[in-house]
Nucleic acid binder design. Structure first.
Lengths: 344, 344
DNA sequence: TCTGAAAATGTAAGCGCTTACATTCGGTCC
DNA sequence: GGACCGAATGTAAGCGCTTACATTTTCAGA
C-alpha cells in the first residue's frame, strides 16, 4: 500500500527518468522505443501499478475503441446469449463493449444513447426497430453508426436479425397443414417490442391466408414468465369450442402453457398442440419436447459485431443481414383431436 | 444533419452567448443560474444535440459515478438476475454500471479490473473470492473498494452472499434423514468457482458426518448445461449398487439429470431422488417439481449495491452480509426405494 | 440616489493523456 | 574527422470539461 493516489503518466515518467511522451509511446507503439528504455519504463509501470486513465486518453486521442449495446433487459437469456457472442466477436477487434439496459422504455433507451455517446461509443447495437424517430436522428446527427438486431427493420438503417414474421407464418402454415382450424395464440407483450408484434402478425397473416377469420383467432399477450404463460393458457382453454392448438410467442410461454395443460389433465399433443419460438435449451428438456422455431442467437451476435465494425470503419456493408430460422419439429405438435365428444 | 462533429461545451456557450462556466453550471447545478439564462442555454443544448463528454468531465471533476462489475459470463441467468437488481439499486444513487466478463479466467478478470479502474470505476463488484492475491492487492493499492458476491469469503474483504457450503450441508442432512445412504453428486465445475466448490464441500462434509466414507460418495463435475447434467447422470446410474439419490450443484444439472432418469425408465423419486440448487424458475416447471435450495439473487444484488455504495462513501459497513437460503421441498426427493431386487 | 453585500456570470488554470514538431544522439560514408 | 541522416527522445499544445477566484450585476436598505 504505497499510497492511495492513482499514479499518472507523469509519475511513471519521473520514476523511469524519461518524458511522458516516451512512456506514452511505450504503451501505444512499443517498437518506437529502444529496448533498454522500454524495459525501464515497463518496470516503473509495474512498480507503480499504473493503468492509463481512459478519460485522459480518450480526450487526447479522440478514440475510445468502445461500442455500446442497449438491450431491453439483462434478465432474459435470449439477449444474454447473443450479447455474449457479440462481445466475443468485438474483442477480437480490440473493442470494449459497454452494456446498458432500457427496460423496454424508449425514453430510457434515449437516455442511455446519450450516456453511451458521451462515453465515446464508436457505434451502438440496438434491439429491434421500434423507437422514436428522434432517437435515431440523434445518433445520425452525431455520426454514430448503429445496427438494429434481433429483427429486420424497414427501409433505412442497418439490421441483422430474423424475419420473425415470416418464420411465424411458416410455422402457422405447418400447424394448419396438420389439420388445425381452431388456433389460439399466447403472444409476448408487443408494446415497444417489434419482435413479439411481428410474430403475432405472422401467425395472423398465415391464418387469414388459410381462411381463418381474425375473430376466430384469440390472442392473449403475456409477460415473459412461465406463470404468465400458464395463466393465459388457462383462459384459452375455457373457450368453447376449445382451440386445438396454442401457438406461443416464445418458448418460455410455451412451457408455461404445457404445464397448465398438464394441470388441466389435457394431453399434449393429443388434446391440444402447443408450439414455441426461440428454441432455447429448455425446449429440448420438457416432455414431450417442444416443437418450436430455432433462432441462432450466437450467429446473430457475431454477424452484428461484424456489421458494426465495418460501419465504424466506413467499409461497405449490406443494409440487412437475415439470419435464417428453422422450424424444429419435436413432440408438441400433432393433428387435432377427432371431432365430437367433449371428453367429459 | 447539421454536421457530424460532436458539439462541445464551447459550441453551446457560443450559441447561447454565455461562458462555458455558465453552461457547465446549468448542467450540474441549475439553481446557480438565473432562469432566463438557463432557458437560453438549455435551448442551445437541445438545438445542438449536445451531450457532455464523459472523458472531459471525469478528467476535470475527478469523479465518474461509475461502478464496475466483473462476472464470469453473461450467459448465465443466475448472474443476469442478480446483476439486474444490482444495477437498479445503483441507479437510485445516480451511479452507472459497467459490466465486464472474465470467462472464469483470473488473468482476464485482472485485465478487466485494470480497464475498469482506468475508466474510473468508484467501486467494483466481483463474483466469489477465488482470485490471486495480486488482483486484490491491485485494487487495494488503487483505493478502489470492492465487494465479493454470491458467496462469503474468508477473513478479509467485503462479501455479500450465501453460505453455499452450509446450505448444501443442510440439504444433505435432509436427504440422509429420508434414509438415503448411497448418495452421488453432479457438481458444477469447481475450477475458479468457489460457489461450486463450496457446495460440493458441504455435501461431502454432511455425508462424512453421517458416517458415509468419501469413497462411497461419487462426484462428477459437469458444465452448466442440461446435456452435461444428463451425461453425468448416465454415468452415475451405471454404478453398482446404484445411488438412491443424486444431489446436483445447480438446477440446470438437476433438470438434465431428471431428463436422463426418464430416458432410462427410472422414476423420480421412486427409483432415484434428485435435488437441485438455486431455485430458478425452471425448478417449478419440471414434473415432478424440483426439490432445491432457494437462493434469493435479487435480494443479494440489492444488498451488494448497498454495501458498495457505503464503502465508496466511506460509511461504516459490516464485512459480511449473509443472505439466508431456504430448502424448498417439492417432488423430487423421497425415501430410497426398498432394498432388494435389481428390478430386472 | 447611493452603498454594499449577495447573486450571477466570466476568466483561466488545469485534470491525464497523445502527438506534431523540435531536439539530441549514434552511426555511416566520404 | 566531419557532414549528414534516421532513430530515439523531449517539448509543449491542446482534447472538453469543472471550478476557484475575479468581476459584474442586482437589489435591499438607508
Amino acid at each position: 500500500m504505497t499510497g492511495t493516489a492513482k499514479p499518472t503518466l507523469d509519475d511513471v515518467a519521473r520514476a523511469a527518468g524519461v518524458s511522458t511522451a516516451t512512456v506514452s509511446r511505450c504503451l501505444n507503439s512499443p517498437d518506437q522505443v529502444i529496448a533498454p528504455t522500454r524495459v525501464r519504463v515497463m518496470q516503473a509501470v509495474e512498480a507503480l501499478g499504473y493503468t492509463p486513465d481512459f478519460g485522459g486518453r480518450a480526450l487526447a486521442s479522440r478514440r475510445t475503441n468502445t461500442v455500446g449495446a442497449i438491450i431491453p433487459t439483462m434478465d432474459n437469456a435470449i439477449f444474454a446469449r447473443g450479447l455474449q457472442s457479440f462481445q466475443e466477436a468485438l474483442s477480437k477487434f480490440g473493442k470494449t463493449l459497454l452494456v446498458a439496459s432500457s427496460n423496454y422504455d424508449p425514453a430510457r433507451e434515449r437516455e442511455q444513447m446519450e450516456v453511451l455517446a458521451g462515453r465515446g461509443a464508436d457505434g451502438l447495437l440496438l434491439i429491434g426497430s421500434a423507437r422514436p424517430e428522434s432517437s435515431t436522428e440523434f445518433l445520425r446527427r452525431r455520426g454514430i453508426p448503429f445496427v438494429g438486431a434481433w429483427n429486420l427493420g424497414g427501409e433505412d438503417g442497418y439490421f441483422v436479425g430474423f424475419d420473425n414474421r415470416a418464420a411465424a407464418a411458416r410455422l402457422t402454415e405447418l400447424v394448419i397443414g396438420y389439420g388445425h382450424r381452431r388456433l389460439a395464440m399466447i403472444a409476448g407483450i408487443s408494446h415497444m417490442n417489434d419482435r413479439a408484434a411481428d410474430r403475432t402478425a405472422g401467425v395472423r397473416e398465415a391464418a387469414a391466408a388459410a381462411g381463418i377469420a381474425p375473430a376466430e383467432l384469440p390472442v392473449i399477450e403475456a409477460a415473459y414468465t412461465f406463470e404468465d404463460g400458464a395463466r393465459a393458457m388457462g383462459e384459452l382453454m375455457l373457450i368453447i369450442p376449445r382451440p386445438t392448438v396454442v401457438m406461443c410467442g416464445n418458448d418460455v410461454l410455451a412451457v408455461g402453457a404445457m404445464q397448465k395443460a398438464r394441470e388441466l389433465g389435457l394431453k399434449v399433443p393429443g388434446d391440444v398442440s402447443i408450439t414455441g419460438f426461440d428454441d432455447i435449451d429448455l425446449a429440448g428438456v420438457v416432455d414431450p419436447k417442444l416443437t418450436t422455431v430455432r433462432v441462432p442467437h450466437r450467429r446473430m451476435g457475431e454477424a452484428a459485431a461484424d456489421m458494426l465494425i465495418k460501419l465504424i470503419n466506413k467499409q461497405p456493408v449490406e443494409r440487412r443481414i437475415e439470419i435464417p430460422t428453422a422450424i424444429i419439429e419435436r413432440g408438441t405438435l400433432g393433428p387435432p383431436p377427432a371431432e365430437g365428444g367433449h371428453n367429459d
